[in-house]
Design a protein around this nucleic acid. Structure first.
Length: 565
RNA sequence: UGGGGCGUGGUGCAAUGGUAGCACACCGGACUUUGAAUCCGUUGAUCCUGGUUCGAGUCCAGGCGCCCCGGCCA
């Protein structure tokens, strides 16, 4: 596992585990699990849970973390999702070794547990319809009413439950319920459903079962069966804990300790499988791995590194207060990582032609430039050619420069990075539209290398590519998926998709890259100098047509100055 | 009108009852062949009201605000 030299943060769960270690609560064991339902792709919110559970196990000597799929609902779960989830966890850098489990592995035990409860008089088969059960449940402020079937004998319940299992009844006609307390102020204790009839094929057990345990009945017992010591879950299950405790106590089996923490929220995006699946199904994005998606597969395709994600998860902390992380922290974390590891290259996204008039027609000046000039520890050279015709970024020229703009303008001298100083002598424009078509410049032959011998300074340094050497490529620029901090902030009757950012994807077809990028391979990442970090798109890029994704921009002080006007 | 949680700078997370700290963001400066990176610095917080205490973010009481729970979803 790759190691970050970062100290992991102390948080309340760690304090609990520390205390348990001290008191030898679980015989000194720390055994956690990450329990996803295979009904969608993992997103960065899951990464928080993965880092927490696997990280905790790593941090305590001999600790273990299982991967267990909570697959108790065959109508929603698919094998495609289990494969993607496994891949994502591995990519993040975690390993469950041989401890890959499924709640469906425990269907036999769970069935036996149900039998045991029936025999103890603690569970009963109810013939009420779903609507009637709801009606009997009462409200938040008023107690519920007992089902007329509540006092059936154990024998009758056993018979009925066995016949449910045998497939004698149709879906929805009967359920098995716990017999707890219909007047409990905690609604989860008002005789919750344990088993329901679902005539559906399960992705692992096939047609062996037509009754399936509910999540509530399966989750805690699955943890118990696996010998989990600390069952870490999100806040919404806090009110379920008394129910899980009740099961474990009635069944008299190993009792893990459940600890709840606040799930991750990020502004300018949504982190809910339900919403993400909507974006995919309604075609607002190209798929689960669309680089704008907060899914692990999406951000991986976009060029994020697992180290950056793990650092991010470490920095956001773990607590019980609901909170929303500023996506700027994610941006910062990935920049920090990519800044350290990526080679620097030049790429012109929106080209503007420049003719250096005093540069000999057929001359090629070659420069040996270090990919890692920013890093004193590394050095690796490539050749960058300069010719009479080059391209610069359109944004790097202003015919009438505003204050504080210190790039190229008529009569102004700037540096072509790593190459020489040029001065703009003329602007060629389209006669009709007035658009700038090309620039005429002269260079100072004594400035080869980028410094003037007389020591004069220039304020601007531009990236550029030699026109005859340039490689054409497609570059995809991404912005926030939503243009509102809180995408759910909508007017009455509106859907969250109204807040989708129409400019979240901008495709630039005619970008020009320095020739060294010719053999760039999927998975490779670069800093396009002065612009941002870019990664080869693993899906659409090919040697014939390179496609880059912008992972994140560089911090841009100039953009801020412009914004302020 | 029940039950369970949670309230610390703009954001997130810390702080054995003892100087409220860290990160991001923000603002300013230095440096610069990336308006990047790096370095330095500035602003800025304990939900409210009482109480206990030499001393309260922390303990107590009462308020206020926010989140979760009435699926045969997880």
């Amino acid at each position: 596992m790759s190691e970050s030299n970062q100290t992991t943060s102390q948080h309340f769960i760690r304090s609990i585990v520390d205390a348990d270690q001290e008191s030898n609560k679980h015989g000194g064991r720390v055994h956690t699990r990450f329990p996803p339902e295979p009904n969608g792709y993992l997103h960065i919110g899951h990464a928080k849970s993965i880092c927490l559970n696997f990280g905790l196990a790593q941090d305590y000597n001999g600790g273990l973390c299982n991967l267990r799929f909570d697959d108790t609902n065959p109508t929603k779960e698919e094998i495609e999702y289990v494969e993607s989830i496994k891949e994502d966890i591995k990519w993040l850098g975690f390993d469950w070794d041989e401890r890959l489990y499924f709640a469906s592995d425990y269907f036999d035990e769970l069935y036996d547990y149900a039998i045991k409860l029936i025999q103890k008089g603690k569970a009963y088969v109810d013939d009420l319809s779903a609507d009637d059960i709801r009606a009997h449940r009462g409200s938040l402020t008023t107690p519920g009413k007992n089902s007329p079937n509540r006092e059936r004998s154990a024998e009758e319940n056993l018979d009925l439950f066995e016949r449910m299992r045998a497939g004698e009844f149709k879906e929805g006609s009967r359920v098995l319920r716990a017999k707890i307390d219909m007047a409990s102020p905690n609604i989860n204790l008002r005789d919750p459903v344990l088993y329901r009839i679902l005539h559906a094929e399960h992705h692992r057990t096939g047609d062996k079962w037509c009754i399936y345990p509910t999540y509530d009945f399966a989750h805690g017992q699955s943890d118990s069966i696996e010998g989990i010591t600390h069952s870490i879950c999100t806040l919404e299950f806090e009110a379920h804990r008394p129910l899980y405790d009740w099961f474990l106590d009635e069944l008299d089996i190993h009792h893990p300790q459940q600890i709840e923490f606040a799930r991750l929220n990020l502004n300018y995006t949504v982190l809910s499988k339900r919403k993400l699946i909507t974006l995919v199904e309604e075609g607002h994005v190209s798929g689960w791995d669309d680089p704008r998606m907060p899914t692990i597969s999406g951000i991986r395709r976009r060029g994020y590194t697992p180290d950056a994600i793990r650092n991010f998860c470490d920095r956001i902390g773990v607590a019980k207060a609901n909170s929303t992380i500023d996506i700027a922290l994610l941006d910062h974390t990935i920049r920090e990582d990519l800044n350290a590891r990526t080679p620097r290259v030049m790429a012109v996204l929106r080209p503007l032609k420049v003719v250096i008039e005093n540069f000999p027609e057929d001359k090629i000046e070659e420069f040996e430039v270090d990919y890692f000039r920013h890093d004193p520890e590394r050095s690796e050279m490539r050749t960058v050619p300069l010719t009479r015709e080059v391209y610069i970024e359109r944004d790097d020229f202003m015919e009438e420069p505003v204050k504080k703009f210190f790039r190229l303008a008529p009569g102004r001298e700037v540096r072509l990075m790593n190459a020489c100083l040029i001065t703009c002598t003329d602007v060629i424009k389209d006669e009709n539209s007035g658009d700038v078509l090309e620039l005429r410049c002269t260079y100072d032959p004594d400035s080869i290398g980028g410094q003037a011998p007389d020591g004069r300074k220039v304020k601007g340094t531009l990236h550029w590519v030699s026109a005859p050497h340039a490689i054409q490529a497609e570059v995809r620029l991404y912005d926030h998926l939503f243009n509102k901090e809180d995408p759910y902030d909508v007017a009455e009757g509106q859907d969250f998709t109204i807040n989708l950012n129409p400019s979240s994807l901008e495709i630039l077809e005619d970008c020009l890259l320095e020739p060294s990028l010719k053999d760039a391979k999927p998975g490779e990442r670069f800093q396009f100098m002065r612009q941002g970090y870019f990664a080869i798109d693993p899906v659409d890029s090919s040697p014939e047509k390179l496609v880059f994704n912008r992972t994140v921009t560089l911090r841009d002080t100039w953009a801020k100055i412009q914004k302020k006007g």
